[in-house]
Amino acid sequence: MEQQYFTDQPAATEAELRRLHVSVRGFEVEMWVSDKVFSGSRLDLGTRQLLAEAPALPGSGTFLDLGCGWGPVAVAMALESPGATVWAVDVNTRALELTRRNAVHNETSNVVPMAADQALTRARAEGVRFDAIWSNPPVRIGKEAMHVMLTSWLDLLSDQGVAHLVVQRNMGADSLTAWLCERGYRAGKIASKKGYRIIEVHPRSS
């Protein structure tokens, strides 16, 4: 987990890469994966639930896949809404390399992989607002760090933007929802399946 979440440039070789066929939002895609990235052997259950339960995306706009890993969410968003621009951000360089490769392989030219800190700086500097944010956030980095990460990006939702997060029930999904509401966001559970909550988040009340 240390390498998967925190290492900027984890070591990996082409020999460690393999292809994985997955179904996302009704699209059949072939993805390159690596053990150096979260859930490097399969599409993890939480992400499966997010992709299954999140409502339809707008046809256009600027979207965010926060913590993109090897890119299943970003590629799914891009395929569903080819008129949108999808920012795919992560702290793991290997994840960004795989997302870039998978976007090209699946002909989704509207995916833009970026290092998380650089992307946040750019979004704030350019006044970027996101119409959709999807994330399977890294709960194991700790509550405080996750709260900082989430609020940094949720504050960049557009006026009509909506975020959807997937969090395990026994990893604090309900307490996270309550915490977001206390901070002024409109947040609530829209689905619960196989131990995971899908949390819908609207911008802070003005």
Rank of each mutant, 00 (worst) to 15 (best):
D8L: 11
R18L: 05
S158D: 01
I190E: 05
A178C: 10
G142T: 11
T47S: 14
G61Y: 05
F27P: 00
G61L: 06
S41W: 05
R42W: 13
Q160R: 08
K189D: 04
L64C: 01
R183C: 05
S158Q: 03
T13P: 12
Q9S: 12
F38D: 04
S41A: 10
R186Y: 04
S152G: 15
G61P: 03
A12I: 04
M149N: 13
T7K: 11
A116R: 00
L150M: 10
Y185M: 08
R197Q: 14
L43M: 04
P137D: 09
A132F: 01
V201A: 13
W32F: 12
P138C: 12
W70G: 03
S192R: 04
R124G: 03
L180T: 15
V86K: 05
L157W: 11
T47C: 14
V162L: 08
E144S: 15
A178P: 07
P58Y: 13
T93W: 11
R18V: 04
P58W: 06
R25Y: 09
I133Y: 15
D159N: 06
P138T: 08
T121P: 00
R197Y: 15
V167N: 08
E182K: 15
P137Y: 12
V166D: 00
P82R: 10
A123Y: 01
S175C: 10
L20D: 03
S23H: 02
G142C: 11
A125V: 12
A84K: 07
K36R: 15
G59W: 07
A191Q: 11
R129F: 00
A125F: 07
T151H: 15
R122F: 03
R122G: 03
V139C: 07
W153T: 00
L165A: 13
M31D: 03
T177M: 09
D90T: 11
S81M: 06
A187S: 09
L96I: 14
L157R: 14
N136F: 14
N106F: 02
K143A: 09
I190S: 14
A15Q: 01
N92L: 07
